[in-house]
Amino acid sequence: MSVLVYVEQVEGKFKKSVFEAVSYAKAVADQQNTNLTAISIGNVAESELKTLGQYGASRVLNVGSEQLQQFVNQAYASVIAEAAQKEGAAIVVLSNSFSGKGLAPRIAVKLRAGLADGVTSLPKTDNGFTVTRTAFSGKAFATVSLTSAVKVISLSPNAFGVKESPADAIIENFTPDVKESDFSAVVKDIVRATDKVSLPDAEIVVSGGRGLKGPENWGMIEELAALLGAATACSKPVSDADWRPHSEHVGQTGIAISPNLYIAIGISGAIQHLAGVSSSKVIVVINKDPEAPFFKVADYGIVGDAFEVVPKLIEAVKAHKA
């Protein structure tokens, strides 16, 4: 019995969300008095695999096979499930990333495992095996009981944080049984904007709404975001009007996010928007309407015209950094 964590690599590197998943899985393994094994698929240098030890992985299974260099949902799910079976893993942990969302359900079916996704807490074992996850787009939390022998947990980004727990990670090659039938979906192209912070796992998000009046005014949003190392986001009316891409829309029907800091500029705070951002740890609202509903859920607020406040805020952040 052990805990297995899938560590998703992007161009041979691990991101913070992976270290967070490893940290979380290590805490789960400690609870269960067992060891943590990580599985990495694709071409990752040994030195990079070793970094997983920093967060508590005592073994790393390295799947370097040529056929699996590129992410194929069906094949990756088979490899992770096979490793879980060979390791006798009782709990499989993934990060609830875009790829994780495609993998976890398939792994759960293969292992006949109960799946909890968007998980925000460590398991509790005093009454069976329960975890907390978000529900109703952040308007509530649900306590889910997993009653199967094997369990799959997909961790919500920024819910646990990165925690060091140094171990010397032993790297082992793992050669899975690959089935041709797992490769009928073929990746043709990957387009990745490497200069921008990715929204779902960003620690700080700067978001703009209709109050900004038009796409030409997003320069200051991007400047503020760049200064803070933040991702940019927007409200639904903004993406509906094509001022910004749909991938930036946060809210109930867009992406639900849980950054440490969410700065909402010119967004009134409709219930559907709040649903997607209410798990943010700290919310700052800048709006010229003192009656905007967003102020009711904000931690800090400035009542004022975005076109005057944001440039001053940029200056203040620059001064703070200097």
Binding site: A108, R112, A113, G114, L115, A116, T130, A135, G138, K139, A140, F141, A142, T143, V144, S145, L146, T147, S148, S278, S279, I283, V284, V285, F295, K296, V297, A298, D299, Y300, G301, I302, V303, G304, D305, E308, V309, K312, L313, E315, A316, V317, A319, H320
Partner: peptide, 28 residues
């Protein structure tokens, strides 16, 4: 394989701390 045992609504946030528009440095 799984079931929801119970729900809770998020704890209410405290009141917003308003900062005057000209004092962005204070916000930072």
């Amino acid at each position: 394989l799984s079931s929801i045992l119970h729900f809770e609504t998020p704890p209410p946030r405290g009141t917003v701390k308003l900062v005057p528009a000209e004092e962005t440095a204070k916000l930072v």
